[in-house]
Design a protein around this nucleic acid. Structure first.
Lengths: 208, 203
DNA sequence: ACGTTACTTTTCAAAGC
DNA sequence: GCTTTAAAAAGTAACGT
């Protein structure tokens, strides 16, 4: 469980007498679910050699040019390409993603694969789930939120494209959200706060 | 039938060739889906806009026509599902849905949310249900929307469940399977929507 | 009529077709 | 555009029992 859940668990609501009118009634609970990072060791890699020394990897060059290197801890999947570039998915935090890439490089070296430099890691995408603590009036939101699409025949959530930060947020009538596209964790929080304030402002939240 | 559009086209340009192909396809879909002229004209208008914006480049014309037609149905509140358009056009539902979302984004179109009440007639006629049952189902859905249990749910599933409940209360002998088949949803979906319906309606 | 698994949507990088 | 990887949300679907 993320640190935030415990923190918010103790003091979930603002007391009604101190609540400012423009303030959300609840504090959103945010949980980072997945981090995608790209990395590069800046050298050519022999994927067949890696396949020979690590029997658990998946490498089907006719299907996909990347080799799949899975770690049990942190539970991640790293794609390794012949160029020495990599893509690491499945981390629950930015730091975990960096640690996962380091672990992969360490394992390669222990297996006898020469890797001269340490990998340079860049965070590409962060996916988070959020609970706003109140229901959302979805069809009203579909009419009033700009850059939004709500097509229940195709998907139960409303898709909203936020411009700043540039993220995409999926809104569900339960009051839960999914925020994706962020490159920094603070951008997730900014996106959620922006949207939450907007929903409050437009009277699209329903609290019990 | 498409003389209006032909006269506006410039016969020797590639654009015209594109329009002729597009509109003959639209004409074919018109009969298959039994939609009115107003819907076809709207679809043609949306397609023209997409062409002007260069959205056709590298994309299948048929898929775009089908998507424009779906968009026109949505805009005119003509109840046709992606499945309907898919079967009539022989284009995968997923591809039509993807093109449709692209049209919404790139042309900044805003569609009304599908009203399940508008789906009742189509399902009822396919399943051969009475006018009385249709009226009952409409009332059920009106109450359901007031209790906002519709959010996020497939409009066809909601309408099908309402019709099934209406059949039971009116003593019309139709099985969940009959209604599900007419609506293009599964019996499981009717059962699931029915659960929410009986809570909202104290059934 | 269950339960399980799997698919729908969004995001992003990688190399190649 | 497609291929692969991961993850959440809630709904629908298709299996098997």
């Amino acid at each position: 469980m993320p640190l935030d859940v415990k923190k918010y668990g103790e003091c979930f609501y603002y007391s009604s007498n101190t609540k400012k009118s423009n303030m959300p009634q609840t504090k959103p609970i945010v949980s980072v679910e997945n981090v995608v990072a790209s990395a590069s060791v800046d050298q050519k890699m022999d994927l067949n050699e890696i396949t020979r020394t690590f029997p658990d990897v998946e490498y089907h060059p006719d299907q996909f040019p990347g080799l799949v290197f899975r770690l049990k801890s942190p539970k991640t999947a790293t794609l390794i390409f012949t160029s020495g570039k990599m893509v690491c998915t499945g981390s629950k935090s930015e730091e975990m993603a960096r640690k996962a890439v380091k672990t992969v490089v360490q394992k390669l070296r222990k297996g006898g694969i020469k890797v001269k430099k340490d990998a340079v890691v860049e965070i590409q995408n962060i996916v988070a789930s959020i609970n706003l603590g109140g229901k959302i009036h979805l069809e009203q939101a579909a009419r009033t939120l700009p850059r939004s699409m709500y097509e229940p025949e195709q998907f139960p959530g409303l898709i909203h494209r936020m411009l700043d930060p540039k993220t995409v947020i999926l809104l569900f009538s339960s009051g839960k959200l999914v925020c994706t596209g962020a490159k920094k964790e603070p951008d997730v929080y900014r996106s959620v706060n922006n949207l939450h304030a907007l929903l409050e402002e437009k009277d699209l939240m329903i609290y019990d | 039938r498409l003389r209006t559009w032909d006269s506006r086209s410039q016969v020797h340009e590639p654009v015209d060739r594109n329009f002729r192909q597009a509109f003959s396809e639209l004409d074919r879909l018109k009969d298959k889906l039994a939609v009115g002229d107003a819907v076809i004209e709207k679809a043609a208008y949306i397609y023209r806009k997409a062409l002007e914006k260069g959205l056709v480049r590298g994309r299948s014309i048929s898929a775009l026509i089908a998507s424009a037609l779906y968009a026109a149905c949505r805009d005119t509140e003509t109840p046709r599902t992606l499945k309907d358009i898919g079967q009539a056009s022989n284009i995968k539902r997923k591809d039509i849905a993807r093109c449709y979302r692209l049209l919404l984004r790139e042309l900044n179109l805003k569609m009304p949310v599908v009203d399940p009440i508008k789906c009742i007639s189509r399902i009822a006629s396919k399943a051969g249900l009475s006018e009385k049952t249709k009226r009952k189902a409409t009332k059920i859905l009106q109450t359901a929307e007031e209790n906002k249990i519709s959010a996020g749910k497939d409009p066809m599933g909601l309408a099908a469940a309402a019709l099934y409940v209406a059949c039971v209360t009116n003593g019309e002998n139709k099985t969940q399977r009959d209604v599900a088949e007419a609506a293009g949803v599964t019996e499981v979906t009717i059962r699931n929507r029915y659960k929410g319906l009986k809570v909202a309606l104290n059934l």
